[in-house]
Nucleic acid binder design. Structure first.
Lengths: 157, 157
DNA sequence: ATTGTTAATGGATGTCATTTTCATTTACTC
DNA sequence: GAGTAAATGAAAATGACATCCATTAACAAT
């Protein structure tokens, strides 16, 4: 099933003066249908399935274009690979933050308390936007600490 | 001037069963005296000045130990290199969050609104700790968007 | 529809932070 | 002071991502 999202991205990309290529269309489709944030390689693999002529290099380049135009968000969760998520459409749906265990590296997604957080973030955003003349579009919140397994021993030898 | 911080770390590391080596002492000194969060290479260079026998490998290994025991925090700001900060001692002093420009990659540090944020974070932390049996020690908050230079053109071609 | 131009591509190669390997050294126990 | 296992440094490996460059394809103008 084709996503109804893609033509939107397509039009916007074109509006910024970029050409619409087969590879870029395939990448936008994958992003529009994604339920999770994907790594560049995740995207490459998914695109490859329907368009094997794709190169990993083009995935990186297209993502860079999409991110720099604001059509796609890029996150760094600290595991050494960036993740990408489409900006319009799927917003809020699976929005969550992370608990990152300092002991074992485990990452727990949570969506609890998100609403209270969001309320505060809105206020903060307003102040920051004004002071720094910065348009805020998204955010990343991570808590670091120790998960249940690691909290007792703290990796003692 | 020797930091009074280091013996603390030293004792704790020992308590976890790790040996205290010259390299580890030097690294702990650097971390205890640091005013900013440092990258592994930053630390290597500083340690090298007083202890040239140090190897970059040992810096990475020692940092891993310190992080996994909770004595040092590790952050990933998304610029491809991790940053480290001592857990006890210098807390709060230069605590800030980031505005990351999606257009050009610029990172703006801000410390405004931190207090309101912290109040909420404390509440959130309490809830999360309980629900996920996770001991929260630190956090990372980043806003993504467009800085003043990038907001108008969004890198259009 | 055909052509010209220039952006976009893919494969190879490079880069850079971090990890692994391994033979040697050293902190700490007895 | 000797024994032993942890820790080390140098070199090589890894893995994500960027760059180079010759080729291809999008799209505007015909």
């Amino acid at each position: 099933m084709k996503s109804r999202q893609e033509p939107l991205l397509r039009g916007k990309l074109k509006g910024y003066g970029y050409r619409i290529t087969q590879g870029r269309e395939a990448i936008m489709n994958v992003l529009a249908d994604a339920k999770e944030h994907l790594s560049a390689e995740d995207i490459y693999i998914k695109v490859y399935a329907s368009y094997p002529a794709i190169g990993l290099t083009s995935v990186y380049r297209t993502l860079e274009v999409l991110v720099s135009t604001g059509l796609v968000y890029k996150f760094d969760f600290g595991d050494g690979r960036a993740r990408y998520e489409i900006a319009e459409g799927r917003r809020g749906e699976a929005h969550h933050h992370h608990l990152v265990c300092t002991g074992c590296g485990r990452v727990i997604d949570y969506a609890d308390f998100i609403n209270e957080e969001l309320a505060l973030l809105k206020k903060t955003e307003a102040g920051l936007s004004k002071k720094y003349n910065f348009t805020i579009i998204n955010h990343l919140i991570q808590f670091y600490g120790f998960c249940s397994k690691c909290k007792t021993n703290k990796n003692a030898k």
